[in-house]
Design a protein around this nucleic acid. Structure first.
Lengths: 225, 225
DNA sequence: CAAATATAACAGTATTACTATCATATATTG
DNA sequence: CAATATATGATAGTAATACTGTTATATTTG
């Protein structure tokens, strides 16, 4: 996987950034350090000024890459979902058995993220934590419809669609494949959050993983042929 | 129901407010108008200054009721969940049949909210929209653990617990009652959001309701005796 | 080497999220 | 009824945020 990914790039809607952060050293530092900072201090406290100080660069230089921190969050989360999509497509590619294929996808989508050395400047473990804690904020806005129209959420939508398709493949009679797929993706992030902050609201702990919960849920829900 | 509720009050953790907004006319106007404004302009754009202008009062007077707008959001969402809890408890109270009881609770928790005339200054329909669009923001913060410790999320936690208990009553063997309960509450809000903004990611539309989806999900998941 | 481009440094603006002070209106109590 | 406490309003002020704009300097490219 590492080898392949080294020459792969996550294709992100160009309207999300002003200048492609992958195109320069400064851009990569912006992405790299913003992940560390947002993860540490939370999206609300994070500012371009602080990021500039941290990377020894100027606030106005960062604005030449991203219009504002909301767009940067869209960039980071798009990257994350694009990366997940690659992992799912790659891992399920050769699997003929539909059930096995769905299970493999579920595993990847609901598992804890492990360090991936392929994208050197991106810490996927921290990015996963950011997605758990901040992803909702990227779409729970008053501009969601316009940004959706501009394609800012394409990667996530495509991923839900892929999962939904796999569900249909396993049980063509099941009436709510899209809702189940979106529930799994969103719900997985939520269960990880609860596990960390509201352990009473989840059965997931050091013994039980969100993956087990969702695997079980899907196996109970679908009529597996 | 109306009669009963007129003399009932939703008990909200006193640490959430500086001065009880139910205790004065100004307080009620703050709550009433903030619901209308947050619903219209979104939580991010909403400020105490704007609210002050709108209710013909002073910014600093509002600060005497709520430390900041985050606390106000906690107040509003706590009220909402408290109201939902009353509705669930009231509606399921006399039901002996466990399955029927769970179904009734699910209905209330996943249905579209309708106007409730009991609490005159609170527009429950708009408040439900606020919860759909903003609730996550109330806990996706860096202070969540501290605020949780102070009891700011007690009502919501109690509601999840109630639902979880009902699930256990129906199927004591099911291993993930808390996760299922939290998934339903959070997932219901999410499906309503998707229906409005990302229709491709849900099967819910004008024909299919989130209630149908979750009722079906639960009936497939639990072994109903 | 010239020209274009990228970045840095600095200044400036409107808004936000408060805090503080003081005046006045209203309610409470002795 | 007077004294006093409390609630609200008016105004001002501060530090931080989220930018925009200008100019200088460094780097890349043709």
């Amino acid at each position: 996987m590492e080898r392949l990914m080294q020459s792969l790039r996550i294709g992100i809607n160009e309207k999300i950034y002003v200048k492609d952060p992958e195109s320069s050293d400064l851009g990569k530092r912006i992405v790299e350090q913003s992940i560390i900072m947002i993860n540490k201090m939370g999206f609300e406290s994070f500012t371009f000024r602080k990021l500039g100080e941290r990377i020894g660069s100027n606030e106005s230089s960062i604005y030449r890459y991203f219009e504002n921190k909301h767009k940067l969050l869209l960039y980071l989360t798009s990257w994350y979902w694009g990366w997940m999509e690659y992992k799912v497509v790659f891992a399920t590619n050769g699997i003929a058995n539909k059930v096995e294929k769905l299970e493999r996808a579920l595993e990847i989508l609901t598992q804890t993220v492990e360090k991936d050395i392929s994208f050197s400047h991106i810490d996927e473990v921290k990015l996963n934590e950011i997605v758990i804690n901040e992803y909702s904020k990227s779409y729970l806005t008053k501009v969601v419809d316009q940004e959706n129209k501009e394609g800012y959420f394409e990667i996530y939508k495509r991923l839900v669609q892929r999962l939904s398709d796999m569900i249909v493949e396993v049980d063509g009679e099941y009436p709510y494949p899209s809702s189940l797929a979106s529930s799994i993706l969103e719900g997985s992030l939520h269960q990880y959050f609860l596990k960390e902050h509201f352990p009473m609201l989840t059965d997931c702990d050091h013994n039980i993983t969100p993956t087990q919960y969702f695997m079980d849920l899907v196996s109970r829900t679908l009529n597996i042929a």
